Simulated scan of single mutants.
Amino acid sequence: MIGDVHLLLTDDQGRVLFGRRANTGYADGAYHPPSGHLEAEESVVDALVREADEEIGVVIAPGDVEFVHVMHNSSSGGRVAFFFRVVRWQGVPENREPDKCDALEWFGLDSLPAEMIPYCREALDRIASGERMSVYGW
């Protein structure tokens, strides 16, 4: 089963940073928070910290990572997506993967962009309502 981490980098106005997918061949044009797959022998927190640096150039202390949701998704035969909120970080977010992302934008959870990957929209709706676990697509 594939494990994913999703970063809900949240500014002082409560907005979350999203990237717009481009040139990936999957859901190009859709907005998605910085995310990635777990690597071998890596904790979910370590993966989140690594992805934040790789994708948007911010440094996150592991103690500043707050678990907010887990989703068991049926895609690809089964995936587990972990969502984490971070409100404190070092650096200024920048697009470090212009070959996969053509824009970074902040959105409130109550004003999400129209174009999103469906499971992610569902997870964010669940997070906004305080749910910590969901199942999608089964």
Rank of each mutant, 00 (worst) to 15 (best):
Q13R: 12
W89Y: 06
P93A: 04
D110P: 03
P34C: 14
G63Y: 13
V45E: 15
R121D: 01
S129W: 05
L8M: 08
W138P: 06
L109D: 03
I56S: 04
Q90P: 05
S43G: 15
L9S: 06
A30G: 08
A27D: 15
P33M: 11
E55D: 13
D46R: 13
L112P: 01
G78Y: 10
L104M: 08
R126F: 02
D99Y: 06
R121P: 00
I127F: 00
M133E: 07
G63A: 14
E97Q: 05
W106K: 01
P118N: 02
T24S: 15
E122P: 00
S134H: 03
G63P: 12
V16N: 05
G130Q: 05
R121E: 01
Y31E: 12
V5C: 07
A123W: 05
P34S: 15
I60M: 11
A123P: 04
K100I: 01
E94R: 07
M116E: 01
L109H: 02
L17F: 04
A81H: 12
V58F: 11
G19M: 04
W138Q: 07
A103G: 03
T10F: 09
F83V: 07
R88D: 13
G77M: 09
L48Y: 13
Y136F: 03
W106Y: 02
V135P: 00
S76C: 06
G78M: 10
D11E: 08
V5Y: 10
R79I: 08
G36L: 13
E42C: 11
V49A: 08
P93D: 05
G29Y: 11
